[in-house]
Simulated scan of single mutants.
Amino acid sequence: MSPELVRLVFDATLETLYMVAAAGLLGTLFGLPLGVFLATSGRGELFAAPLVNRVLGTIVNAARSTPFIILVVAIIPFTRLLAGTSIGTTAAIVPLTVAATPFIARIVEAAIREVDHGLVEAAKAMGATPLQIVRKVLLPEALPGLTLGLTLTVVSLIGHSAMVGAVGGGGLGDLGIRFGYQRFMPDVMLVVVVVLIVLVQAVQSAGEALARRADRRVRRG
C-alpha cells in the first residue's frame, strides 16, 4: 500500500478505537446499574419491584433483539438530537451505546445471579444494607464474570463499529467499504480485516488475563 493508504488505515484504526472506547464506557455507565437492578429487583429480592423489573426486562429484550443496522437507522433522529448529525465517528457512538447498554445489562444480571445466595444471606444476617450487599458482596464476587462479559461486549462493539461504516460512521468499516469494496482495492480490505482480527484478539486476551486475576483475588478474599 502507498504511504497515503497506510495513513488512512492508521487514522481509521484510531477512529474505531475511539468509537469502541466511548461506547463501551457509556454502555457500562448505563448498563451496569440497570443490570444490577434487574438482578436484584425480582419478587423477594433486595430491591423488590417485580412490576418494574418485568417492564425493564421487556424493554431490554426488545432493544437486544433489534438488528444493529436497523437500530442505527431507526434512531437517526435521536442521534441527530444528541450529536447534531447522523454521520461521522462521534455520531456513531450513539447507536453503539444504545446497542451496548442492554447487552451489558443482561451480562451484569447473569454474573450477579451466579453469586452464591448464601453470601447474600450471611451479609443480611450481619446487618448489611442492600446497597452494601451490592457494593461489598455481589459486585466483588461477580467481578470475574463481569470482566469476561465486558470483554465480550467490547469485541461485539468492534464488529458493530465496522458495521456503522456502511452508513457513514467512519472507522475501519468505512475505510473497507469506500476503498476495499467501492474502489476494488482488495489489499485495503485485507488490511482492514487483519487489523480488526488483531484488535479482537488483543481485547480477548487482555480480558481473559484480567478475569483470571480477578478470580484469584476473589478466591483469596
Rank of each mutant, 00 (worst) to 15 (best):
T16N: 04
T16E: 09
T16S: 04
L17I: 03
L17W: 07
Y18V: 11
Y18M: 13
Y18H: 15
Y18I: 12
M19Q: 14
M19Y: 06
V20D: 09
A21E: 00
A21R: 01
A21F: 03
A22M: 08
A23C: 03
G24H: 03
L25P: 04
L25R: 10
L25C: 11
L25I: 14
L26D: 02
L26G: 04
L26Q: 05
G27R: 04
T28D: 10
T28Y: 07
T28E: 08
L29E: 12
L29N: 08
F30Y: 11
G31R: 02
L32V: 14
L32Q: 10
L32N: 01
P33R: 07
P33N: 05
L34W: 15
G35E: 09
G35Y: 13
V36G: 00
V36N: 01
L38C: 04
L38A: 06
A39P: 14
A39Q: 14
A39F: 07
S41G: 11
S41P: 10
S41L: 10
G42M: 01
G42Q: 00
R43K: 02
R43Y: 00
G44K: 01
G44T: 00
E45L: 05
L46C: 03
L46S: 02
L46V: 06
A48Q: 04
A48N: 03
A49H: 13
P50E: 14
P50F: 06
L51C: 14
L51S: 08
L51A: 14
L51W: 14
V52R: 09
V52N: 13
N53V: 01
V55K: 10
V55N: 09
L56C: 07
L56H: 13
G57A: 04
T58Y: 12
I59V: 13
I59Q: 01
N61R: 13
N61F: 15
N61D: 15
A62I: 15
A62V: 15
A62Q: 12
A62K: 12
A63S: 11
A63N: 09
A63C: 14
T66E: 04
T66G: 08
P67M: 12
